[in-house]
Write a protein that binds this DNA or RNA. Structure first.
Lengths: 157, 157
DNA sequence: GATTTTTTGGTTATTTATATCAAAAAAATT
DNA sequence: AATTTTTTTGATATAAATAACCAAAAAATC
């Protein structure tokens, strides 16, 4: 099932929903220059085709107290499928791990961990993270500030 | 204006909205065990207090063709405010840059760039990115696969 | 150029959101 | 401990949005 090509109306719909995920169909329709019916139908198709995978409320991490992020790069003992799968399964179960990528190069994973502060981070690292079997070494980098907060590529240009 | 403390109802509302950003107030109410009115009011307050900063449709990057991400770490010539501000302003204007952090340590910025492929990435790098004044050196790391896709810390635990 | 297919936009029934207010619950005061 | 005050809730009514249907228009195909 190859995704059929999007026309400019679809792009306009996606672009608006990327920034205003709770906008009404009526408002959407007005701003893309169509009537509500076709917009609702197009959106339903985009959802069913898996282009729009969901909707999320954006919540201020700092307001919740999770303003302290750390980038952690990880090296595993062995890089066989089994070891990767076990590591990834653990990662997915930790709410502290916000984002995680399998990397090329000399490090195996890059992830971002969000906690309430250095103390919480240490607790997570020593109490939980390093207990994952197969973790050979980790390297932490601490950001000062987020410059641009992205979910996915925006349809801006 | 300090954010007033959240009670369990607020947490439940935020948790659901984090995963189902377009859920109706009625459904929300049913699932948090309140009637619609107080849920609507609580949500409005959370929005006005800046806890909920917005809503976004989650769009499959791959379906749009932007399946190729690169992590780029950047070092600037100088680290004076002026240089940082100019760099960050440029970064914010590039839709290719999905995410960007100001870092401690020997590198100044860490960012993720999403493009259609290696060719597009090279075009962006040589044609756009390296033209930003003050960029001294860059280092690219290529991920194989995203293991966990995060927006922000989830309220799972 | 006629026919088929796709897309649109109007209509209506149903669902959802918003504003208001009285009752209940919680907190504060005496 | 009882009363007052404040806060939160839930019901109701009104307005708005959504979803399903269908005929008309546009686009594509032959």
């Amino acid at each position: 099932m190859i995704a059929t090509k999007f026309d400019p109306h679809d792009i306009a719909i996606l672009r608006l929903l990327q920034r205003e995920g709770r906008i009404s169909i009526n408002d959407l329709a007005e701003r893309v220059g169509l009537s509500p019916s076709p917009v609702a139908r197009r959106l339903r198709i985009l959802e069913e085709a898996g282009i729009v995978t969901g909707y999320a409320a954006l919540i201020d991490e700092a307001a919740l107290g999770y303003e302290f992020s750390v980038f952690v790069s990880v090296k595993l003992d062995r890089q066989v499928d089994d070891a990767l799968a076990r590591f990834e399964s653990a990662i997915r179960s930790f709410p502290e791990v916000v984002d995680c990528w399998l990397m090329t190069g000399n490090r195996d994973y890059l992830l971002r961990v969000a906690t309430r502060g250095l103390a919480d981070f240490e607790r997570f690292l020593t109490g939980t993270f390093t207990k994952i079997p197969g973790v050979a070494s980790i390297e932490s980098s601490i950001p000062l500030r987020r410059v641009k907060a992205g979910l996915a590529r925006t349809l801006d240009s």
